[in-house]
Computed example of a mutant assay.
Amino acid sequence: MSVHWVYVIECDDGSFYTGYTTDVERRVREHDRGEGAKYTRGRTPVELVHRERFDTKSEAMSREYAIKQLSRAEKERVVERDDECESSG
């Protein structure tokens, strides 16, 4: 059974990019090498700042869409909550 991920990376220019993958580490490396999404090319290096795990592709794609609809401030809150979880765990 595949694991599906939604991830947020912060680009070198401070912008966020949200994507879907089944392999977060590979996908971040691709973005970092300029082989990822067109948006991230020229905005490297990138840093993984958030990821969420899902059992189905459908759930992951729905969450990716939802995050992409958020304002910058709302995306920052998603990332900050992730930081809090990692530091308390």
Results as ranks from 00 to 15, higher is better:
77 R>A: 15
29 R>G: 04
74 E>M: 04
45 P>W: 08
67 I>P: 09
27 R>A: 06
66 A>L: 10
46 V>W: 11
50 H>L: 01
77 R>E: 15
48 L>K: 12
34 G>S: 13
9 I>L: 11
41 R>Y: 05
32 D>G: 04
38 K>H: 11
75 K>G: 03
62 S>H: 08
89 G>Q: 12
59 E>H: 01
19 G>A: 13
54 F>N: 06
46 V>G: 11
88 S>C: 07
39 Y>M: 04
81 R>P: 00
81 R>S: 10
9 I>A: 06
58 S>V: 09
18 T>C: 15
8 V>C: 10
28 V>Q: 12
85 C>E: 15
78 V>C: 03
1 M>A: 14
47 E>F: 03
42 G>F: 08
49 V>R: 03
38 K>R: 13
89 G>N: 05
10 E>M: 14
63 R>M: 01
30 E>T: 00
12 D>C: 08
60 A>R: 06
73 A>W: 04
36 G>H: 11
55 D>M: 02
35 E>S: 14
50 H>K: 04
66 A>M: 09
17 Y>C: 08
30 E>P: 01
6 V>I: 10
57 K>L: 08
21 T>S: 15
52 E>Y: 01
36 G>T: 07
35 E>P: 06
31 H>G: 03
5 W>T: 00
23 D>C: 06
55 D>Y: 07
29 R>D: 12
9 I>D: 02
21 T>P: 02
41 R>G: 02
45 P>T: 01
77 R>D: 14
55 D>R: 13
86 E>H: 06
87 S>I: 14
76 E>G: 10
32 D>C: 00
67 I>K: 06
62 S>I: 06
13 D>T: 07
62 S>P: 00
24 V>T: 14
36 G>L: 01
49 V>Q: 02
4 H>K: 03
13 D>I: 09
43 R>C: 08
42 G>T: 12
89 G>A: 14
62 S>M: 00
50 H>P: 01
39 Y>A: 08
15 S>H: 13
71 S>H: 10
81 R>N: 10
69 Q>D: 07
58 S>Y: 11
25 E>Y: 10
79 V>K: 02
63 R>I: 00
51 R>D: 12
5 W>R: 05
1 M>P: 08
14 G>H: 10
5 W>K: 09
34 G>W: 13
88 S>D: 13
56 T>N: 04
